[in-house]
Amino acid sequence: MTFSLARPSTIVEALRLLADDTEGPTAPLAGGTDLLLDLDDGRSTARRLVSLDKLPWKTLAWDGPRLNVGATLPLARLGSDATVRARLPGLSEGVDAVGSLALRHRATLGGNLGRAAPASDLLPILLAVDATVRLVGTAGRRELPVARFLRGSRQVDLAKDELIESVSIPEARLSTYVWQRVRPANDVSQVGVAVARSGSSASWRLALGGVLPVPTRIPEAEVHLTEERPRPEDVELAANAAATHARFVTDKRASEAYRRRLVATLVRRAVARAQIPPGER
């Protein structure tokens, strides 16, 4: 499908273009690795794209114990950062899981959040570390936890004249993301499991991908993971709770029943892996 493309240089101009529907439905374009496919097969009806390429958001910086990732930073640059791999290993592992290196040179964290795919490899870890999304719009700036930003399958709390500006992610040295696929390379995960334990939380947080309607935390599993090194019987309870309480989809990649069994295994694997230092995994 054909569309027109605007490439604004300022945030103000980008927001003005997004609010203006006179040329037809308008959508923001980050890396385009998901949106362009939707345009090709008609799942997106956008007739004008507003490219975020020239906005000053390809940034990566630690602010004390929090990592700020600009919305349009290519995932490859996030994945190759040694400080991120040491201080937020689960995030690096989520990035490694996305497509191929060439795809990660274009795909972005902001795009992954904004598209809110059920099988996203990045949303589980953002939920498990309790990341915050920072938005900028014509009405001003606001920020909210990723858990509240995600409203449903491919639905997010983002106004028409609003953009994701950055993501603020707390350090979590005890974190990991594990996944299962039909083929390890270049495939979409059947299920992904992220676990993390950060300073402020009293227990491990656990979030699943490949579930309905969108990646989500499973509090019923987290209650069993209060200890820094959970006992095997508690891990078992958490694994069973995750398999019981999540809503799974049956699709071409896996049946609901298979996903349910997979989740229990991946939860056991994730809790064990998260306790291994990043360099030794």
């Binding site: 493309l5 490439r7 374009l29 890396g31 385009g32 690795t33 362009l36 496919l37 090709d40 490219s51 390429d53 490859a76 497509g99 191929s100 290196l101 060439a102 795809l103 040179h105 274009r106 270049n186």
Partner: peptide
């Protein structure tokens, strides 16, 4: 594939591997 899965269309943009099937021409200005 034209869906970013096969890598046959890979080019370098500023030296970095890039899937030309998922890149708008105007974005490499």
């Amino acid at each position: 594939c034209r869906t970013g899965d096969c890598g046959a269309c890979t080019v370098l943009v500023d030296g970095e591997t890039t899937l030309s099937c998922l890149t708008l021409t105007h974005e490499v200005q």
